[in-house]
Design a protein around this nucleic acid. Structure first.
Length: 497
RNA sequence: GGCCCCAUCGUCUAACGGUCAGGACGCGAGGUUUUCAACCUCGAAAUCGGAGUUCGAUUCUCCGUGGGGUCACCA
């Protein structure tokens, strides 16, 4: 039996912009595993590249996670026993590690300028050689290097990769992976501005923070042998590596801003439910069995395991996400959905409509529309007519299709019949409305569907609407009759064509 | 190009070496129906190719092919 280690995993984005669904899926999987194992999920900000720092990105990252319900046990905002959680505040640690490596002969100072290195690469490429740092300072006398460093000359610190043999590591999903050391060059671990590169920083931090599983995208596989060497040179224990598949964009490239990636918060904006996005993200690249695909967060935590992740990159099936969002909309607890609808309508309904939005009214219409939308963003346009007494009568052409084509007078008469029969209706409810309107249709010998469509357009303002009679019940007798009369008049004033 | 990873319906995926290769989205047909949806039924749709190993390969091995990743003082 292996030792029951405490699971400590981390999500470590760099604050260079909004997280998109690809990186957040990675965070989700990592978080699910932490929860499942009763471990800790840590948020760490990898801000070692000052030039790429984007103002506000840290907030956007946190907001994205929060929206999805991905909570962290330690992080930049709440601190924790292994802080600080900004790498920029841990500079001394990296410097110390780098210097220790120099001392032990695992690293050295390199004074090559960026221009010099660029020229080196260009000539290598011209000679059809793979571009690699050629180790020009690897054997530079240590004393001379120290002197130049002390005189203030800029330098970087490079790791001295073994030049022979190979490096093997085990990936939880893919098993053993081996790289020939001669393929790897002496990579930079500490930049001339004193900041570490990712390679050094994450090795130092993951060790200091006692990270048990390094979860990251498979694009890191090629540099993992460097990390193995670093862990070893520093005398650190190797963590468990999990290189998860990436998400591919519509063009087949790795999902990124340039390849059609959307930000997590854009999905919130467009009216996706976070439960649906979480469910969808979890099951793209992972499956429990051959038939289950709807999972609550709780259930995911129960059944998810990193080792069951798929090995191959997946596309992002936007259409299926929409379907799933619709499904969540339909299945959700009604009052919860009403809350969500109210919030959305507060935001989306035209400014003329007085606020606050009436919760009770939304509660009434929720059953009528919940199965008719896939995205919350469709809501306002579908239910707007419930919230104003001023629904403009659509143009005549809207009424005069199919059965009513070129028959504006007949249509007007049909609407008159409708208002006349509805006017004296004692009990204004959907069933009664339906009954009298059906009777009328029958009397007039008009197909029910054709007959109702006029009223639908008059009352709701559109050809496509929530169920007519229930909507009419909600709107109220007086207002409905007003709208029907208005429509009839408008049709009478339409010149026959 | 070197190195590395990966390969099942269009897409996401399931299948101790033995299944009629399963499910879901989407698509098509039908049903229900006051519009639109939703819902129900049915249908079309896949193991990249070639060698092996085996009584038997989606599954194991090798070689191709294809896709992706990576080769920075970015992560």
């Amino acid at each position: 039996m292996q030792d029951i280690q405490n699971v400590r995993v981390r999500f470590a984005p760099s604050p260079t912009g909004d997280p998109h669904v690809g990186v957040i899926r990675q965070a989700l999987w990592t978080w699910l595993y932490a929860k499942k194992m009763n471990g800790k999920f840590i948020l760490r900000i990898e801000d070692t590249d000052q030039t790429r720092y984007v103002e506000g990105a840290v907030d956007r990252i946190q907001n994205s996670l929060q929206w999805l319900g991905i909570t962290w046990d330690e992080g930049p905002d709440i601190g924790g026993p292994y802080g600080p959680y900004f790498q920029s505040e841990r500079k001394d640690l990296y410097k110390e590690a780098a210097e220790k490596l120099i001392e032990n002969g695992f690293a050295y100072r390199c004074f090559a300028t960026p221009d010099e290195l660029r020229e080196m690469r260009e000539s290598q490429q011209a000679a059809k050689l793979p571009p690699k740092y050629d180790g020009r300072y690897r054997d530079y006398p240590k004393n001379d290097a120290e002197k130049r460093a002390e005189s203030g000359e800029p330098y970087v610190i490079r790791f001295a990769m073994p030049q022979e043999g190979s490096t093997t590591f085990t990936d939880l999903l893919r098993g053993e992976i081996t790289f020939e050391n001669k393929e790897l060059d002496d990579f930079v671990i500490l930049k001339s501005d004193g900041f570490p590169t990712y390679h050094l920083a994450h090795v130092v931090d993951d060790t200091a923070m006692e990270i048990s599983h390094v979860t990251r995208g498979e694009e890191w596989i090629p540099s993992t042998p460097r990390h193995v060497q670093l862990f070893n040179a520093l005398g650190y224990k190797i963590p468990t590596w999990v290189h998860a598949p990436v998400i591919l964009g519509p063009d087949g490239g790795k999902l990124s801003k340039r390849h059609g990636a959307k930000f997590v918060l854009e999905y919130a904006e467009e009216g996706y439910l976070s439960d649906a996005l979480v469910n969808f993200l979890a099951i793209t690249g992972w499956a429990l069995d051959d038939h289950t695909e709807i999972f609550s967060r709780e259930r995911l935590i129960e059944v998810f395991d990193l080792k069951d992740l798929s090995k191959n990159p997946s596309g992002f099936d936007q259409t299926k996400l929409e379907w799933m969002n619709g499904l969540y909309l339909r299945e959700m607890e009604e009052n919860d959905l009403v809350d969500i609808f109210v919030r959305r309508l507060e935001r989306d309904l035209p400014a003329e409509i007085p606020r606050p939005i009436d919760w009770a009214l939304v509660k009434e219409l929720t059953p009528l529309v919940r199965e008719r939308i896939k995205l919350l963003s469709e809501l306002a346009s579908l239910v707007g007519f419930f919230f104003t007494s001023d629904v403009p009568t659509p143009a005549a052409a809207e009424f005069l299709t199919k059965k009513w084509k070129d028959r504006s007078a007949d249509a007007a008469n049909a609407l008159d019949s409708t208002s006349n029969i509805l006017e004296p209706l004692p009990d204004w409810n959907a069933d009664n409305i339906q009954q009298v309107m059906r009777n009328t249709a029958e009397k007039l010998e008009i197909r029910a569907g054709d007959f109702f469509s006029l009223t639908r357009i008059a009352v709701t303002g559109t050809r496509i609407s929530p169920p007519l009679f229930e909507s009419m019940e909600i709107i109220g007798q007086e207002l409905c009759i007003d709208r029907i009369r208005q429509a009839a008049n408008s049709l009478r004033n339409t010149p026959a064509s």
